[in-house]
Every structure is written in C-alpha cells, then in structure tokens.
C-alpha cells in the first residue's frame, strides 16, 4: 500500500530520525557517559557560544554532565513511553470503542460509563495513584499514559463506528452472513484507520508532555537517569544563566511532536486508497 505514494516524507523522517536513532543506539553514540559528573566543566555553554568547548557540543549542566549525552539518553525514555503508552492506550481504547459502538445497548452503556468515570478523574490524580501502587519508574509512566488516553480512543472510535454500522456495506456484510468479528475487522476497522492514525500521532505528542509532567512531580523517571521532561524541569531554575539546559530538551520535544504529527498526516494519505 505504501508504494502508492511516491513521495518520501522527508520532513517527518528528519524530525524523527534523532529520537529513533538515539533511542535505539544511545550507548554506542553518546560522547560521554550521561551520568558522568565533571565539576571542572560546570555550566559550559554550547560550542558556538563564548566559553563553549568542542568536548561538550551542547554544553553541560550544573554538575558538568554533557547535555547532548543526556538528550540521547532521554530519547530512549521518550521512545519507550510514547510507543508503549500510546499503543497500549490505542489497543484498549479502540477495542472498547468498537464494542460499544457496534453492539450498542448494555455493552455500550457499561463501556461509556467507565469512560465517563475515567474522564471525571483528573489524569494527575490517577497517575499519583498508580505511582503509589507500583512505585515510580518507566512502567508507571507507560501505565499512566495508557490509562489517561484510552478513553479518547474509545469515544472517537465509538462515534465513528455508530455511523459506519448504518452504512450500506456493513448491512450488506450482514446479509452476506459475515460474522461480527469479520465485520468489525474487515469492514469497520479499515475505515477507522485514518482516524486512529491521526489520533495516535497527536497522542504521541501529548504523551511526551504528560511524561514530562509525571516526571516533574517525581513519580516518573528518577534521577540520575535523564528524560526530556526531567531535564526541562531541572533546567528551569537556571533559565536566566544557562538557558540551553531547558531549551534543547524543549527543542527535542517540539521536533519529535511535530515530526509525529507530520508523519501522521502522511500515513493517513498513504493508507487511503483514494489518494494516489
């Protein structure tokens, strides 16, 4: 199907390449150990500013740790959190939304009331709950993201399923004696593809931001390992003297979120048989 679109999505590739390459191959490419403290080289600016050294391309933090190396380490967390969290949410949410929209009645009521309950509890409260239950760490962040986001999928997918199941081709599938499973997977799910792809890519961005927030309140990634959100919150207090500490992780998040969204646009078109 991908061959139908001749254009290669260069912009999303360029924007997402760092996070993917860094996340997968971090230990082989970081110039310094990300946790190596060097008080002799505290708060060095990036190389192109006065006082910068080629040894620390993006400068160092208040402990003399290399910023570039920490960004590379943070990419892995971003990758794990975004991919596992969002895909777990999508899996649960899409299944729930399909069941609610397609079967209706009691199934619909039960699922949508759970969604309502979930929506009425603040995400951060849920996260703290999970954090205190299973302890801080990457698992907590992934669980928190999945639990926060699944309801969005459920709502959107339910709505679209409700309208799709009234369409002629779904009714004709019933007339042709297709099973519910076949109707859901062959007739309804493929037509939800565009919606789900767009939602996933939007959620990837939101997941990174939520990860930063969770880390900020102390139940996410624990120091001394680094995550982009953690780096921003650490760099915040030094913003007036060492702006690069918060700025570069910020750029990394922005570029990744933008790249994910653009990739989503491209995927939506690439998967649509109507667009050549």
């Amino acid at each position: 199907m991908f061959t139908r679109v001749g254009k290669v999505p260069w912009i999303p590739i360029v924007l997402l390449a760092p996070v993917v390459v860094w996340g997968l191959f971090g230990p082989w490419i970081w110039p310094h150990e990300p946790t190596a403290i060097d008080f002799a080289a505290r708060l060095k600016p990036p190389v192109w500013l006065e006082g910068g050294t080629a040894n620390h391309l993006l400068g160092t933090d208040q402990f003399g740790r290399d910023l570039l190396s920490r960004l590379i380490e943070g990419a892995r967390v971003a990758l794990i959190v975004a991919v596992f969290g969002v895909f777990l949410a999508a899996l649960v949410g899409v299944a729930a939304g399909l069941a609610a929209g397609y079967f209706g009645g009691v199934t619909d009521n039960i699922i949508m009331r759970i969604v309502d309950v979930k929506m009425s509890v603040p995400a951060i409260l849920l996260t703290i709950l999970i954090g205190s239950a299973i302890g801080a760490g990457v698992t907590t962040v992934v669980a928190a993201i999945a639990i926060t986001f699944w309801a969005d999928y459920a709502r959107v997918v339910r709505g679209e399923t409700l309208s799709l199941k009234e369409r002629g081709f779904v009714e004709l599938a019933k007339v042709a004696d297709c099973s519910h499973l076949r109707i859901l997977t062959r007739h309804i799910l493929p037509n939800l593809q565009a919606t789900i792809v767009v939602l996933v890519t939007l959620q990837l961005g939101r997941a990174l931001i939520l990860e930063a927030a969770i880390t900020y309140i102390g139940i996410g990634i624990q120091p001394p390992s680094s995550a982009w959100g953690l780096m921003i919150s650490d760099g915040r207090s030094l913003l007036s003297t060492a702006w690069w500490l918060a700025a570069f992780p910020g750029f990394a998040i922005t570029a990744t979120v933008l790249g994910a969204n653009l990739l989503g646009d491209w995927l939506r078109d690439a998967l649509d048989p109507k667009v050549r």
Binding site: G168, F169, L172, R186, P190, N191
Partner: peptide
C-alpha cells in the same frame, strides 16, 4: 446508494 454500499477499503 452505490457509494455507501461498497466498502471503500476493499
């Protein structure tokens, strides 16, 4: 309606 009675993804 021949436009809604054929699954667009098949």
């Amino acid at each position: 309606d021949p436009f809604s009675s054929l699954s667009p993804r098949m």
